[in-house]
Amino acid sequence: MKIFVVNNMVPFVRGGAEELSNHLIQQLRDHGHRVELIRVPFKYEPPEQIYSEMLACRMMQIEDADLVIALKFPAYLIPHPNKVLWLVHQYRQAYDMWEAGSSNIPSTPNGIELKRCITEADSDCFKNVRRMCAISPVIQQRLKRFNGLDSELLRTPLNAPEQFVEGEYGDYIFCGGRINQTKRQYLLVEAMRYTSSKCKLVIAGPADSSSDGDKLQELVQRYGLSDRVHLDVGFHPREKIASWASNALACAYLPIDEDSLGYVSMEANQAAKGVLTVTDSGGILDLVFHDETGWVCEPDPIALAAQLDRIHEKRSETIAMGKNAKKRWLAMGINWANTIERLVA
């Protein structure tokens, strides 16, 4: 089958969606399909620019494709009679972020009109696709609420599951992923000062800004935790991340209201590690069940400290929790083979 994967791009900025589209293409090719990637530049400032970008996408044509898999706004507006939407992003600023008052679209008559136009174009596009899939229940709920549409849940699989293995269960808890305020690595560092055990923490990943990394470093220094908290800010190859996760005692991931299960937690489960998370972490709670596949507590340093101690002190319970997490994770069937099968069906 000749397939086009359609995504947009902000040049020189790479995020999860780029990673996803690259793996999707590789996996489709591995399944014998001929695949090309389309990357449409997207500039959402000033907001009025969005009009022309939407219309530009609508005016584009894809030739000679049996199937189009589209991921993001506004690239998914490119027309094709056999289009499957695997929705990573609507333009949230016109939806939930607008309601939350955190949109770049102003609350002026012009802004309200732009918001209406985005919603109209989205709804028209969605009703004309062959299949409508969303990567998370949160996205499904938004689609239902704002566009009145049902969709299938098709979660994103791990990109290199074979690298995440059940390793040695060392003496540290690993926290991977991007470092910023919404991922709340600082909360873990704060919690570490209240622990009574000798548990260790490894935080590793690229910081969104240098200040995000600096703040964390400063906290470690301030609380005198440098012997127990290892901070490795920066981009690390997947092998290194996999090694940290595979040999950890458990993993931790505390994002604010994440849409999806979170790559960090999925990788942890793949490596047979239980995950420590908090009650307002959103989609992570679809994977982490307290006392079964991990630990869920209030987003509070003292509550977190208690769980960190428990993870460290009840080692065999922690390991059992990790093994159980892996079992439940694999049973969910979230892998590329199933994903490709559903996308091209």
Partner: peptide, 19 residues
């Protein structure tokens, strides 16, 4: 790298150039 779709099929050529 940006990659844009294009089809030489008439009658959409001009619309694509404009896009």
């Amino acid at each position: 790298v940006l990659v844009l779709p294009f089809s030489m099929e008439d009658p959409h050529v001009l619309a694509q150039l404009a896009s």
